[in-house]
Design a protein around this nucleic acid. Structure first.
Lengths: 268, 268
DNA sequence: GCATCGGGTTGATGCAGATCAGAAACCACC
DNA sequence: GGTGGTTTCTGATCTGCATCAACCCGATGC
């Protein structure tokens, strides 16, 4: 795969299934008979495990989409919470901030992932969600999702799993932030990205980062210079090639070993 | 309040409402007609926002309790997930581990809090939960909770809020781990503990830590020596008094300011 | 009484990563 | 093709916390 074909997307094209183009209405909200049942993400998104009939019900409530240009904000902390968003295409970062202005990227989200769950607790969003490339989300009104979950318990159950998975993911980030050294953090980050891309059918070894070194650093609790140095180190060691945002993993195993040997490095 | 009266509980006694003593059956599982409706934690636990009738329904499914001695494990990573647990009394730590043996305390939980939600995603628990003092939990079978949520949507909605609150809490820990210096972390920890105790009607300024310096350190991404030094520093500065596990906050405001000035200290 | 042990404190030293600084690469736009 | 702004890289220096080590304190047991 050429570097050129990667330039405009984190996600290398898998099979060239041209998506039906939408004629956007006024603004960036699109009303249309969305078909979860035909969406290529149905195996990774909300419909997982639902019957055909239940998916049809889901389509009843997921009837708007929203398009965002790179850099646009999907929601920000303090916004009233009404909907969750299923990412249809593109790439997002979530950013949380302390009252005194410190902030941190709490995660990066890609197609098929459900975001906005931070807002449920207080009916207000508690973090920002920002598109890192031109993106499209399906709007899932939360009260409708709850109502539908009563009629389709499988949906409710799946939703609980999605929330729980977010909690578990955050445990992983806490472990990373609390106990790993810089290179281990970057290795964990790259492996995680690779694995999630692979789960969507894309190359596990070659991809384009949509975020800056600074955003990676913010997520990993490092300064951008440290991230940059770690990238260079990995490249010098022959584990990866990096050319700006284009990353190729040459020796996945060594990356993994770097992680699993971490505790030995530290403790004895 | 004397130090003596605090020795055996993190939570200073509020009003001396003697709890009905249970005669434990065989083992540590107790079957009894639990009365959420009479529990002194009903304002802070699962029943929040439920009607009298709905609470009665909840009592139908919460019919066992489990007692744990200090140091006992409620569940561990890999255990099959069947139930959530509402803490009736006592104090717990949650601990997550990486495949290679690093671990971290992901949080401390006290009476009225619901734990075990990490297990929903894969039907297996993904972290350990360990009692830090003699404790008692109400067992909430998860499939029954889901079933009941269908009949009592307010319960389901509240449960979603509880899960979301856990996600938001973890964002806060990520911010702490990713961007705060040692003393700020400890200040944030103490303020958080204080605020949660106050929410339960206990003193916000005087309490007994149930965890060791090492456990605090593990949670905050610090070594125990650093935690100890920060405690000493706070005491030397006159913000708190520390005597072993007994902590008294003398100047809450200065603790808070230490936090809110943090970003200034760092960035300019 | 004394010995033991886990938890806590305090001091001395080392190092990973932050900070500061400058240059190069890249991009968007005229 | 030039220009200004952003992003990335690399080197030099600084520093906060980890690490190593010694000692103290309170609880428990004999």
């Amino acid at each position: 795969m050429s570097a050129d074909s990667l330039r405009n997307s984190t996600i290398p094209v898998r099979i060239a299934t041209p998506m039906p183009e939408l004629s956007p209405g006024a603004g960036n909200l699109v009303r249309l008979k969305t078909a979860c049942s035909h969406c290529h993400l149905r195996e990774v998104c909300l419909p997982v495990g639902l019957s055909r009939e239940q998916i049809t019900q889901l389509e009843q409530i997921v009837y708007t989409r929203r398009r965002l240009k790179k850099g646009e904000t999907l929601y920000r902390a303090g916004d009233p919470f009404r909907s969750l968003y299923a990412i249809r295409s593109g790439f997002f970062k979530a950013r949380a901030a302390t009252p005194d202005g410190r902030d941190q990227v709490t995660g990066f989200q890609m197609a098929g992932e459900l975001i906005g769950m931070d807002g449920i607790s207080h009916d207000l969003h508690t973090c920002d969600s920002i598109a890192l490339e031109d993106s499209e989300v399906c709007v899932v009104p939360f009260n409708m999702l709850e109502d539908l979950s009563i009629q389709a318990p499988a949906l409710g159950h799946h939703f609980h799993k999605v929330m729980s998975r977010e909690i578990v993911r955050e445990h992983g980030v806490m472990l990373l932030l609390g106990s790993m050294r810089a290179e281990e953090r970057l290795a964990a980050f790259l492996l995680n990205l690779s694995q999630r891309l692979a789960a969507r059918g894309f190359s596990a070894t070659e991809f384009v980062l949509r975020m800056t070194r600074e955003e990676i650093g913010s997520h990993l609790g490092l300064k951008l210079e440290t991230v940059s140095r770690a990238f260079s180190k990995f490249q010098d060691d022959g584990m990866i090639t990096v050319k700006q945002k284009h990353v190729q993993i040459l020796e996945m195993d060594r990356l993994r070993r770097l992680l699993s040997n971490g505790s030995r490095n530290l403790h004895e």
